[in-house]
Write a protein that binds this DNA or RNA. Structure first.
Length: 586
RNA sequence: GGGAUCGUAGUUCAGUUGGUUAGAACGCCGGCCUGUCAAGCCGGAGGUCGAGGGUUCGAGUCCCUUCGGUCCCGCCA
């Protein structure tokens, strides 16, 4: 092999005349009989190399057999291209390398798909041959953005006195939250480790141990069903700080976020980040992670529907609507699609009216008399050519259905400007969600989240209205970080456990070490965790979490490349004391 | 757990109402070609129509089951 003197993205006019060595992959071959052009590629770029029978004394028949993705080591002379032969689309397009000798380092077998464009192959085949797909420009760019994001994060946090500490990957399974991935113990047959859903407990213990400011870029595991922005194993920037309140967290974390966006995208995010309470976000946008790049807020129309003859809304607790600018253009077919769309969120239907000549027309407009229509147009800001789309139902059903429809219409109409990033703190989440089926409360964030000071008594009187000191950082409709100020008073912690249906004994068994640790001098503390993959998605402009992960899994949590999960030998199972149940016969 | 959608050559796709020998482009193989850069031109090979079953004189096409990909609801503290 000729040790490379330059990368394939490096050579310029100033190098003309130099003898250079390049190593790389054959990107394209252009064969012209006595002259052969090859674009040689590595991760730094592409350089045109030229084989010419006039100057190349080796086996020209072999040169003619070069094909895509062969790995070559090339020695040659950099030379100027003729004016007519310059390629302005390439950084190296003003020069070429005239090959004097080359070595075939590895001849590539015929490819399962052509690497020029990711659309050339469906995702399942690209995932099976992920090592080939990772050679493509778009993925290399994403992986490099990811790398830069790691570095920017570590740099900023280290400069701000955060200490990087690794926490165990094999840990105790704890109740609440997502399903755990379990790892059987050989030494303690019948017992299992769990892979961390997050290092939550360890980072709180690190605060108790006095590390003051902790961070880690860490893999987390949740055995739940997947989505376009969810993988079974994913990465968090996990942080915790002592002697802080919300304001300290917001200041430090918006500092980190601003640093990352400035470094990676040269974007200046607002300072400070705007805030909404959970209640405000839900009422205004129907989402706890609203995309602020467009308006189209949810309007209360209950006062109007109550005055109308439209009886379906009379019994509805909440009636809200979206005023869609220019929405009068929507055909019946599109409105039917919207109706199907909101039904996924358990809305019973979607009522509509259109603005025309200062009044409302179509849909359910005949149930609203003219004065009422005029007052609606005025108060809701409905102009001619707009549409009003309404849902009446239980409050949460209305909010989530219209919130989702708002996002769907914005997507359809391209309302969200690309390259614009609008961060938002969402605060004051409820402490608990009540689950009717299980007949108990579940922690909305996690069981260590502190209630607001003024809401501590509500834990006894009415837990359902107690608000927490939890917060999320959202951006462009994605939750990119979530955290809370933690409970550091053992009595409050025990109270919360009991509300979650964990008896004193359960809690002691599952979390006892943390509860005990809290009694030995716990500083007030709080923290946050960023969804690193989603953050990189935003930075890279990717629409899919798999595009920013080197080796992702499918939506059924398998890896098509290495075919995991897979069966294991009987011996392995025996050592672990595990016996498989027979699959039920169909 | 539920819904939607896709699966045809190595790859991306077309394939009419169920009807003759399942097509195109790219890739691959062979030939021509000394300035291309998605090189061009000529020729060739290449198919378990995801799998299994059914309806039918006849199925890529219709029906059932099943496997896999993607997207969504539930779920994801």
């Amino acid at each position: 092999m000729y040790k490379r003197t330059h990368t394939c993205g490096e050579l310029r006019k100033s190098h003309v005349g130099e003898t250079v060595n390049l190593n790389g992959w054959v990107n394209t071959v252009r064969l012209h009989g006595q002259i052969v052009f090859v674009d040689l590629r590595d991760r730094y770029g592409k350089t045109q190399i030229v084989f010419n029978t006039d100057s190349f004394s080796g086996d020209f028949e072999a040169v003619k057999k070069l094909s895509m993705e062969d790995v070559l080591s090339v020695q040659g002379i950099v030379r100027d291209r003729a004016e007519s032969a310059i390629n302005l689309n390439m950084d190296t397009g003003k020069i070429e390398v005239l090959v004097t000798d080359y070595l075939m380092l590895n001849e590539a077998a015929p490819l399962p798909f052509v690497l020029s464009d990711r659309e050339n192959a469906e995702e399942n085949i690209r995932l099976k041959y992920r090592y080939l797909e990772l050679r493509m420009e778009e993925l290399q760019r994403n992986i490099l953005i990811r790398h830069d994001t790691y570095q920017a994060t570590r740099h900023y946090l280290s400069d701000n006195d955060f200490v990087e500490v690794e926490t165990p990957v094999l840990m105790k399974s704890t109740p609440e939250g997502a399903r755990d991935y379990l790892v059987p113990s050989r030494i303690h047959q019948g017992n299992f480790y769990a892979l961390p859903q997050s290092p939550q407990i360890y980072k709180q213990i690190l605060m108790i141990s006095g590390y003051d400011r902790y961070f880690q870029i860490v893999k987390c595991f949740r055995d739940e069903d997947l989505r376009a922005d969810r993988q079974p194993e994913f990465t968090q920037i996990d942080l915790e700080m002592s002697f802080v309140d919300e304001e300290d967290i917001f200041t430090t974390m918006s500092g980190l976020t601003r640093h990352i966006f400035k470094t990676i995208r040269n974007v200046d995010l607002p300072d400070p980040f705007p805030r909404l309470t959970y209640m405000e976000a839900m009422d205004t946008y129907g989402s706890d992670k609203p995309d602020l790049r467009y308006e189209m807020t949810l309007k209360d129309v209950k006062e109007f529907s109550d005055k109308s003859e439209f009886n379906a809304f009379k019994s509805a607790k909440t009636v809200k609507g979206l005023v869609v600018e220019g929405g009068a253009k929507y055909s019946r077919k599109i409105i039917d699609e919207f109706t199907d769309f909101v039904k996924k969120y358990e809305a019973k239907g979607l009522a509509w009216m259109k603005g025309e000549n200062g009044v409302l027309t179509g849909g359910i407009s005949k149930f609203f008399h003219e004065d009422l229509q005029k007052s609606m147009c005025k108060k809701l800001g409905i102009k001619d050519g707009d549409a009003l789309l309404m849902v009446g139902d239980e409050r949460m059903t209305v909010l989530s259905a219209l919130g989702a429809l708002r996002v769907e219409i914005a997507r359809m109409e391209n309302l969200a400007e690309e390259g614009v990033f609008l961060p938002l703190w969402v605060t004051e989440f409820p402490m608990f969600e009540y689950d009717r089926e299980a007949d108990r409360y579940f922690a909305m964030h996690h069981p260590f989240t502190a209630p607001r000071k003024e809401d501590v008594e509500k834990l006894d009187s009415d837990p359902s209205i107690a608000l927490s000191r939890g917060y999320d950082l959202t951006m462009n409709g994605l939750e990119i970080a979530g955290g809370s100020i933690r409970i550091h008073a053992p009595e409050v912690q025990k109270k919360v456990f009991s509300l979650l249906g964990l008896s004193y004994d359960d809690a002691k068994e599952k979390f006892g070490f943390l509860v005990e640790a809290l009694t030995y001098g716990s500083p007030p503390h709080g923290g946050i965790a960023f969804g690193f993959d989603r953050l990189v998605m935003l930075l890279a402009g990717a629409e899919n979490i798999r595009d920013v992960i080197a080796f992702p899994k499918t939506t059924s949590a398998t890896s098509l490349m290495d075919e995991s999960p897979s069966s294991v030998s009987r011996e392995q199972l025996k050592e672990l004391g595990i016996q498989l149940r027979k699959k039920p016969n169909n």
